[in-house]
């Protein structure tokens, strides 16, 4: 469980259909980040701005659920490259707030947003190939790939990140204490 060159744990992170709130909460470990950086190195992540995963990544932290085709591709890239895949936060775990659209047919969602809503000038559903296509429902990531750990919360508190990573660094099976478990 070490980086080949530096003997540090390589971590990659991303936000799919999320709000980056989980990443912000991760940063809330504050000065403990310095300690962390003695043991880990960041691969693909908004923290590093690296766009694609390296070959040997130990841990992938996924924020957000799956709302479009690009989310699925990104998730699969993570699953293919990381040893331990972690669903971080409510959206990755159960779809979260974006999944509140799930009981409305996608057709209605798109029509409402791009065709009929008040104030729309030239009604048209965006169809540029650069834009990811929406899935009919927002899905949690465990419905598409095997997930190894779950860190619940909206967002998970800095303490949860810290518990998880310190357990991992110490070679222990991560164990989130009851007091740190929350879904909001």
């Amino acid at each position: 469980m070490t980086d080949l060159m530096t003997h540090k744990i390589r971590i990659a992170t991303t936000s799919l259909a999320g709000c980056f709130g989980c990443h912000m909460s991760f940063l809330d470990i504050d000065e403990r980040f310095f300690t962390l950086c003695e043991h880990v190195v960041f691969d693909r992540s908004p923290f590093t701005d690296i766009k694609h995963l390296g070959e040997h990544v130990d841990v992938g932290l996924i924020e957000g659920g799956l709302c479009n085709a690009e989310n699925v591709s990104t998730l699969r890239e993570f699953r293919d490259h990381v040893k331990i895949l972690v669903a971080v936060g409510a959206c990755a775990i159960n779809g979260g707030i974006p999944a509140m659209r799930n009981h409305i047919p996608l057709k209605e969602c798109l029509e409402e947003s791009y065709l009929v809503a008040v104030g729309i000038d030239s009604p048209q559903i965006p169809n540029d190939p650069e834009l990811p296509l929406l899935l009919d429902r927002v899905r949690p990531i465990h419905e598409v790939v095997k997930v190894d750990y779950f860190l619940p919360g909206c967002p998970p508190s800095a303490e949860v990140f810290w518990t998880f990573l310190t357990d991992l660094m110490a070679g222990r099976e991560p164990q989130i204490p009851e007091a740190q478990i929350h879904f909001d």
Partner: peptide, 11 residues
């Protein structure tokens, strides 16, 4: 799961 989107965008 992408079918509705494909239909609506013609992609």
């Amino acid at each position: 799961a992408l079918e509705v989107s494909r239909q609506m965008t013609g992609r």
